[in-house]
Design a protein around this nucleic acid. Structure first.
Lengths: 195, 195, 195, 195
DNA sequence: CATGAATGAGACTTCATTCAT
DNA sequence: GATGAATGAAGTCTCATTCAT
């Protein structure tokens, strides 16, 4: 074993699991396949995870982390206009959804393996918090409607974004309508959020 | 065999499966459990379904059918106003989502068992068609914005509705906010759809 | 049902079974397949055969019948010489073995399904009786050795004939040696049987 | 686990399978029975054999090995006379056929499980090679007819030997005729092979 | 920490046979 | 005689998990 392998067996296992779940889903992937791909022994798996099901929250977390990192890149500071925010949200949600299409399906299908529903909420919380904060800033600048409760509004916005993106990347919508989908989505959100 | 039994073994199996999937999910439910609950022999299952996986599309279909029946009940004729439509959509979507909460999770998790993505789309198609038609009628009556493409708009509306409802019933949101959730959702949709 | 079908269901079932056993062997062929191919109902099978296993002796019988019919065709009367008999035996054994190659394998593999070993002997008995009679006639005409017990001799002759033929048709011997095989077989038998 | 157990699970399984096939044939023997008799767990079977069918060639090989070992014991050197050879062949073929009667049936019935016919030929090849060599030696010593092609002759000899022996041990011929069967067989072969 | 052979419960599915019509 | 839906025992094989090394 090379020094670089030492101690990163957990990472090795997670990556192998992610790759296999991506291709075959959770149930059709066996621990044997995971350890083989990770290059560790069968028993070693249980040194790092109490059971196969404990992989699901761990993986879901790392996918959402991915999404958040991407969004933060485009939004270090505040957004100048509502249009800016909406455009960024659409671009990044579509990009991340496309990139992780299989893992999103996996997260849905794996939801049953979360110990509690709140575990799932906890994973999403930072995303909502970030979005609420951005909306608040725009409202304070008079760039957004000011009647709604931002907690709900953020939730609804995420709902439309995911619906739009998944339509294409998860349920195989026709790509030639991708651009119009984005434009229509933009208009829809702007109508709902504009002052 | 009494006449009433004739031909309803398929129904018996489907109902038993739905009940068990509700409690334990797809993977943890065995065909043995299903036939026991349905009160038929093991082999009888395979007279009606080629395999356990073939239950998934069949069940998803019956949930959506449920939703559509409910919506049609409330909407025999046209809707007089946009507010009417939105209120009905919210009420029925929330009701059906609550009623079928576990089966919705099941549908997500079962998505992998659909032979093709189009099978899933086919199930949803009548719902979208119905909603587009209603929106069109309102637009023609001058009661709705008239810039958007209704195909997309219908899609986005369903996205927000499901996001809102699932927040409570699937992900265990706090019920005391249920009413404000509905009101906020109503406002959000009206802003997006109003002329 | 046409009049011509009436009463020949047994034949229909046997033919269907033979065809399927030929392709897939006894164990891999199900009664469902047989009745489907025969065009009768599932339960009808058990009107004609007490069980699936009872098909085996019935089929073996009809194969041997085939062989006997063929031999009788070539030997309505007596054989003029030992050479005539041996030549006929070789030609017909090879022909029938080639024609029924898969069913011969089937008979071997089905042997375990005979209720008694004597059932198998009974099937072969007319063949042996016919051959013994021919050998006796030749011996009486002074055209064959006269020391051996014809019961055994007939048995040994059949053994060599089947060994020779099966070598080609069951165990895929190289066909280009087929003619020499027949010639060698003829010489071998003539040496063993000649006065 | 004691050292003596190490690595012999495959042998344990093979022996258990042989014993059961002997009694009940291949199809009527289940993997459950095999592992129970071998004293290992169900899953362990599949650590050593990809499927139940993979037992057949492995076992057929070990039976033929048995026969060859026995023949070699009686025939280290050459045979002094044709009579010697024929007598030995008859004695050993009868003995081995009697000893392995059920496994011979099994080999026939298992033939369908060989991947290729040549797999079966390969198993028999050493037997034929040994016999051809003995015949050649006798011919060179002028003790055998010298017209025939020994490849075929060896094949025919085996055919008669097996036919004679199986008549008694596989198809339950009457044992009181066993001795005359041997004598008649000896005469038959000597007539066919003598110079 | 790490290994991997062994475990054994249990999954899905098949199929010979029955019986009410 | 004919039907075919229903039966349920039994089969093969998988796989998460353990434990002696």
């Amino acid at each position: 074993m090379t020094p670089s392998d030492t101690g990163d067996k957990r990472r090795l296992l997670l990556d192998a699991a992610a790759a296999l779940f991506r291709q075959q889903g959770f149930e059709k992937t066996s621990v044997s396949q995971i350890v083989k791909k990770a290059g560790v022994a069968q028993g070693t798996f249980y040194l790092y995870f109490p059971s196969k099901a404990h992989l699901v929250p761990a993986l879901a977390q790392s996918i959402i982390d991915h999404l958040l990192i991407r969004l933060h890149v485009h939004a270090e500071g505040r957004f100048a206009t509502l249009e800016d925010l909406v455009e960024t949200l659409i671009r990044d949600t579509y990009a991340v959804t496309e990139e992780h299409r299989e893992l999103i399906t996996f997260c849905y299908s794996g939801m049953g393996y979360f110990q509690t529903a709140s575990q799932w909420e906890a994973i999403y919380a930072p995303y909502y918090a970030w979005l609420e904060q951005r909306l608040l800033e725009l409202r304070q600048a008079g760039l957004m409607e000011c009647d709604s409760d931002l907690v709900y509004t953020a939730n609804f916005v995420v709902g439309v974004l995911e619906q739009g993106a998944e339509n294409f990347f998860v349920f195989g919508g026709d790509r030639k309508y991708l651009d119009s989908s984005r434009q229509q989505l933009q208009s829809f959100l702007l109508r709902a959020l504009r002052p």
